[in-house]
Every structure is written in C-alpha cells, then in structure tokens.
Design a protein around this nucleic acid. Structure first.
Lengths: 145, 145
DNA sequence: GCATCATTTCTCCAATTCCCGAAGTATCGT
DNA sequence: ACGATACTTCGGGAATTGGAGAAATGATGC
C-alpha cells in the first residue's frame, strides 16, 4: 500500500464529491448493486456507473459481477487507507445518510429480481412514502445541480 | 463542528490536490508564512495565496497576520476533523514530503527578514544544493503542470 | 438466434479548476 | 508622505469535470 502525495490526493479528490461520498456511506453497511444505488440516490444509471468507476479507479471499492448485476463494496479493510473509516463513521450523523440507511434496510430485504421487476421504484415498493420520487423529473434534477 | 455530507465533501475536495496536500503536510510541523511556502513549493505567489485561501475557507488552516507577513497554521486539534491527522501522518513516507521537511528545518532557522532579504532564494541560502532552483524557470514549470 | 435487461462507454455541452501575471491592498521603514 | 515589500484579488486562457442521453457491451432466458 504505497502512500504518496499524488496517490493520496487522487483518493481524496474522488471522495470529495457529495454523490460519491454518499455512495461510499451507503456501501459502508455492505455491498450493493448499481441498480440499488441508482434508485437510492435518484441518479441516471450512467451517472451512478461513472461515479462508481471513479471510486474503483481510486482503489476505494471493488466490484463483483453476478449474472446481470454488478455488486460494489468497500475494498477490504487491509487495503483500505486508514483514514477512510474515520471519514465515513461521523457521516452517520448526517440526516441524508441516516435516511439512506433506513431505506437500505428495507431495500436489502427485497430480492433483486423483485426489485427490478418493480422498475426499481422505491415509491411503488413502499420504501419512500407519499412524495412521488417518480423517475427523476427534470425539475427535481435541475435544483440539485 | 457540524459533520455533513456537503461540508465533508468540500473539505476532502480541497484536500484532494497535490499542492494543497503538500502545503498541509508542511504546516503539520508548525506555522509558516506565505513567502516560505511559496519558496518551498516553487509556486507563483498568487498561486500559493489562492491555495491557502481555499484551505482556510474549508476550515483546515487559520491565518495570523504579523507585520508584512501572514502566517498560516493548521486549525487547532479541537476544530480539526478527526481524519485529518490520519491523512497527514502517513505522508511522512512520501519522498517529496521528507525533502520538504528537511528543507523546512533549515528554513525555520533563518529569520524571516533575512530570508526575504535574500530574495527567498533557497539556492542562495544553501538550502537546496547544486540544482539551480532559480526563480522558477518557464521550463521547470512546464513539466510539473 | 433474438429480445431483454443491467451496466458501461461514448458524445456532447456547460461549468469549474488551475495557474499565471497584472493590478490592488496593507504595512513597514525612512 | 513615499517607496518597498508581502500578500490578495482580478482577468483570462487551457484543461478538467459532471452529467445526460445515446449507443455499445454482456449476460439471461426463450
């Protein structure tokens, strides 16, 4: 595990983005596939995929293919920079992360097949309530940018 | 000390740049003024100043004005994110950081007045040796970009 | 083989970053 | 008051990033 300024800067830079940080915080509780993460963060599939690719290139996550799905997880603790857990742990206090964890508990209980059959719609599955988190309205996207 | 995804992402992003990481690694051993850091990293003054301003905006360093000089230092440990020291500590093994520390030991021994009177020229002061680290040749800059 | 579905890669555009030199600010010494 | 000096802010140009949709890839099931 070589520690150098350029390598460390690259890892920190990748981590220094709200979406990627949120992805990692979600993965801290265990592996998830791209479609679950996409639904959780309400992103375009290609956007989620690209962020995950960056995290992988920085050596922060690994992928595991299984059938049609690709599961991502944090790199195992030995290969993990020591500061990563220190960064992620306090994020539990962020309300966004807390809500993500709550939804993930429900989400993990649903088999992937069923989840995808339901169009990966958290609303339809009763994971998010009245607010229609419908398929990413243009309006919703525009504000977050 | 509010911990949130946006705030943490902002701090990590600022840290995720080789120059700023090197600046922080230098400051880990104690406060330094802009002109010392500029000479150490061989940057344009305005570039160093802007990087330091970003670090300050992210709450990672504080400034102290004294006469003509502005001294920067790491924020005090209480206000410091817990992961910051974990990030900086292993960097001691980076050869660049090791060399910076060596030069800093010599540099700190020189009063600021004298240092500036010598045009902040590390070569002239015998801190860097034969390599003429003259005032930032265009050639030298071009490669590092 | 062929359609389907999850994911990745490509193409494009807007926005941001990075770095410098120039211009501006503030402080010191005279 | 004046010039010199340490630093900051501004202006601008090259490079990178972020994100979406479209097209490509790869595995599954019929």
């Amino acid at each position: 595990m070589p520690v150098s300024i350029p390598a460390t800067a690259a890892q920190l830079k990748v981590l220094g983005h709200p979406v990627r940080l949120r992805l990692l915080a979600a993965l801290a509780a265990g592996e998830l596939c791209v479609c679950q993460l996409t639904a959780l963060l309400d992103l375009a599939t290609s956007t989620a995929s690209e962020h995950l690719a960056e995290l992988r290139a920085a050596g922060l996550v690994t992928e595991r293919k299984e059938g049609r799905w690709v599961h991502y997880r944090l790199v195992d603790p030995a290969a993990r920079p020591k500061w990563l857990d220190e960064v992620l742990a306090p994020l539990a206090r962020d309300p966004q992360v807390a809500e993500d964890r709550r939804r993930l508990r429900a989400l993990r209980a649903i088999p992937l097949e069923e989840f995808c059959r339901a169009d990966r719609d958290l609303g339809r599955l009763g994971i998010v309530k009245p607010a229609r988190r419908t398929p990413r309205s243009a309006a919703a996207r525009r504000v977050t940018r």
